[in-house]
Design a protein around this nucleic acid. Structure first.
Lengths: 148, 148
DNA sequence: CTTGACCTTAGAGTATACTCTAAGGTCTAA
DNA sequence: TTAGACCTTAGAGTATACTCTAAGGTCAAG
């Protein structure tokens, strides 16, 4: 099949498939006389493998490692693959925690604000984004700090 | 104060402060004779305002809107600010949910794998990343699909 | 024989937010 | 006066993962 069909069957655009080729992730098993890329069902499996890996949050670099394990399984051990997965789990957990903290802060920010058509003169959102210490600090305090 | 001190006091690098200036977020209130940027305590408050907003997950574009509200509060209403906060809450919630789904999938992927020094020949991680349908499909099935 | 769908390449553009570089000018203290 | 810290600018580089463009070649159908 040509790149158009691989695209349809894999769900990756032709552009993306060529881009992945540049990155060394997938190669057409053949070329036609007119230099078109010709793929077989094994290439399709590889394309789908990459797509699944990406949907699990793995970077192209990580996918590359998976592909090399996949290409020569006896040369690798399970730990090779599991280490990547475990690290990704840690990364994702950390990101989720960070975002949850942001969410709590955002809720505090938002909940205090009436959100109505009142003038924003005393809008709690804008106030909360100001440095809290600055509010109780005078100009002279700041000058003193500058000297310190 | 010059940019170096604003940098120290705001926690934003001098590079970043100049970048924010290019983006129209912050301006030095003055220039020295030698063309150095001169900032005052109000500029420091603005720098900190931007930093806080960024730490809450707002994009520079959103920060720009907050700054314009902040710059002329009577010209804006609370809803202007709250809408941005609410939208950001939605965005963050969606991202958290997506990442939680990814996490569940990653756990399934990882937990099934021994992670030991066994050959990756039958590694469940690599297997799971293969298209599941493909596993029960034969070469002839695929050929038939290709014709369809 | 032409139209339209498909393919090719190298390279540029998109998005976000910085981060750094080069080449040079300024300032302060010893 | 000179070393070193600081400042200036325009513009390029970094990271990730695409996404698109231009200019052209290929191919099947009518």
């Amino acid at each position: 099949m040509k790149i158009g069909e691989l695209s349809k069957r894999s769900g990756l655009s032709a552009h993306t498939l060529r881009f992945y080729e540049k990155q060394g992730l997938i190669q057409a098993s053949n070329r036609s006389e007119s230099n078109y890329r010709i793929y077989n069902s094994s290439d399709l499996a590889t394309a789908k493998f990459i797509k699944r890996s990406r949907s699990m949050g793995f970077s192209l670099e990580e996918v590359e490692v998976f592909l090399s394990i996949r290409a020569d399984k006896p040369a690798h051990i399970c730990r090779d693959a599991k280490d990547i997965a475990q690290q990704k789990i840690k990364d994702v957990q950390i990101k989720i925690e960070e975002m949850q903290q942001v969410l709590v802060a955002l809720h505090k920010l938002s909940d205090a604000c009436c959100g109505g058509s009142e003038s924003a003169e005393f809008c709690t959102i804008i106030e909360a984004l100001e440095d809290s210490e600055a509010a109780v600090r005078t100009q002279s305090n700041i000058s003193q700090e500058a000297q310190a």
